[in-house]
Amino acid sequence: MKSSQVPVARKEGLVVQETSEEVLVYDLNSNKAHCLNQTAAFVWKSCDGNNSVGDITKLFENETGSAVPEDMIWLAIDQLKDKELLQTVPADGLKGRSRRDVIKTIGLATVVALPIVASLTAPTSVMAAVSCSCLVPGDCVATACPSTVNCNASNICAP
């Protein structure tokens, strides 16, 4: 039986695309896309249900050849948890400290890049295309147009 201290990466409902340096993850449930930098991606991939946070720390040290504080791994896990990319989440390893506080401590202790998970909600086709042409105000749903409430005399979503 898996320990609650062993993080497990979510597998279901995700599309994963490896890029040269990062990993892109698309969440089919929330239509959110996430970009994991190398550090965050390594931690995420290591969350296989067998590795504890301590194990992942050692694996990461072997991978990078640098000493890494366990807080660095917890920082990644904290972000992965927030983005719903973990299926099983260990108890809060940051022990109530803010990410900012943890980053300050880590920053002095390692040369390895901090974990980053950048996210974006994928647009609907209407939002991505944003033509701004309209027939009635109800057609003006794209927030990128000059107006979302008015379809003007030129049939443009604008004042």
Binding site: V15, Q17, T19, S20, E21, E22, V23, L24, Y26, L28, N31, A33, C35, L36, N37, A118, L120, A122, P123, T124, S125, A128, A129
Partner: peptide, 28 residues
């Protein structure tokens, strides 16, 4: 760079919700 660039392009990708797998592959 790389994946972060692809993430920026997603805002302008028309079929991203319809076919995210193919879209990500092509953008990458």
């Amino acid at each position: 760079n790389g994946g972060f660039g692809v993430l920026e392009l997603l805002s302008h990708t028309i079929p991203i919700r319809y076919d995210p797998k193919f879209s990500l592959k092509v953008l990458n």
